[in-house]
Design a protein around this nucleic acid. Structure first.
Length: 322
DNA sequence: AAGTGAATAT
DNA sequence: GATATTCACT
């Protein structure tokens, strides 16, 4: 049923500004899982809230996982997913030589054109390694929303990659992911400050949608650092009430165990932009220009009730658990 | 551990 | 060409 509504929404005229705002919350899956991660962690119980409708996808990726060793899947299907291999940077395929390290040196001015060895299939190896490594994370509006919410709630003070990552509790999200995004986010904020009133020419759709909390109110929020685990504060629910009838941050998230644990991943080039069924006559060229209203009709519905994989269910996540 | 800037891959 | 990732430094 929702497909109809969504379709109509984006197809019909629809107010630009109206279409996005309310949809955000609606789009959020919010399956109300179980206990918050913090709580779980505090109690040392195995937090296993991440699991829902992705089971289906899980199965699919499972198949691919089996052949991940072959890794030529990227050539045929184009989508590769990694399942559960706890490896950080270690790469058995290209051990011995560190291309990343040499990268800088070479660029610096060292024209060391060695490659005397058998580097004929270096590209293959590289692609192979990259294939099963880290499938480029795509920051969907929802994901970004979570990010922003967490950051806003944490306060600029505690808004550090690690904490953000933990609070987001998004499966597959790494600290690097968050850090990178956080940087971009901050950059955007800075840029935006100059053009407070208008500026319909941004390159950051996601960020543009975030009015940015006037001032990251720093709250004595407890960070799940170490030593201190006063669980029972946030889980209780409204801890926001400051006694004022006004809540500045409309962020309804005491960091509950949301279950948006399926970041969308893109793969090799050629897929344009994440399954975009296109066919939308109103599509102004590309999708990446929606700086004013991120949430419109992006096929991001896979998050919760993805029914048909219309275009494809390329999105998979890694149970990367730290 | 986290921030920044740049190269790099997709 | 834009994005996200990775790297080296700080």
């Amino acid at each position: 049923m929702y497909e109809e509504a969504s379709m109509a929404d984006c197809d019909e005229g629809v107010m630009e500004w109206e279409v996005g705002l309310p949809s955000a919350e609606d789009l959020t899956p919010l399956s109300q899982p179980l206990i918050p991660p913090e709580l779980a962690t505090a109690f040392s119980i195995s937090p296993e809230p991440r699991r829902s409708a992705i089971d289906v996808n899980r199965a699919s990726q499972d198949t691919l996982s089996s052949i991940r060793g072959q890794l030529h899947a990227l050539s045929s299907s184009g989508n590769v997913n990694f399942k559960s291999f706890n490896d950080e940077e270690a790469d058995p395929t290209m051990d011995g030589s560190d291309p990343r390290k040499l990268r800088r040196i070479e660029a610096g001015g060292g024209a060391t054109e060695d490659d005397a060895a058998e580097n004929g299939n270096d590209d293959a190896a590289a692609r192979a390694a990259a294939a099963m490594k880290r499938p480029r994370l795509v920051w969907t509006p929802q994901l970004h929303k979570r990010f922003v919410e967490v950051v806003a709630h944490l306060g600029i003070k505690n808004a550090v990659p690690k904490t953000i990552m933990q609070l987001m509790n998004v499966e597959g999200l790494t600290r690097e992911n968050v850090a990178s995004h956080l940087q971009k986010y901050r950059l955007y904020l800075k840029r935006m400050q100059g053009l407070s009133s208008e500026g319909p020419s941004a390159s950051d759709p996601l960020f543009a949608s975030t009015p940015v909390p006037q001032s990251f109110h720093e709250s004595g929020a407890m960070v799940p650092e170490t030593k201190r685990r006063d669980a029972g504060t946030w889980s209780g629910g409204s801890v926001q009430g400051h006694g004022n009838g006004q809540v500045q941050v409309p962020i309804p998230m005491p960091y509950p165990p949301q279950m948006m644990h399926m970041p969308v991943f893109g793969m090799a080039h050629g897929n344009g932009h994440l399954g975009m069924p296109m066919g939308n006559p109103a599509t102004p060229g590309s999708y990446h220009g929606f700086e004013s209203h991120p949430y419109s009709m992006v096929p991001q519905r896979d998050w919760s009730g993805n029914k048909f994989g219309s275009f494809a269910s390329y999105q998979h996540v890694t149970p990367n658990d730290k």
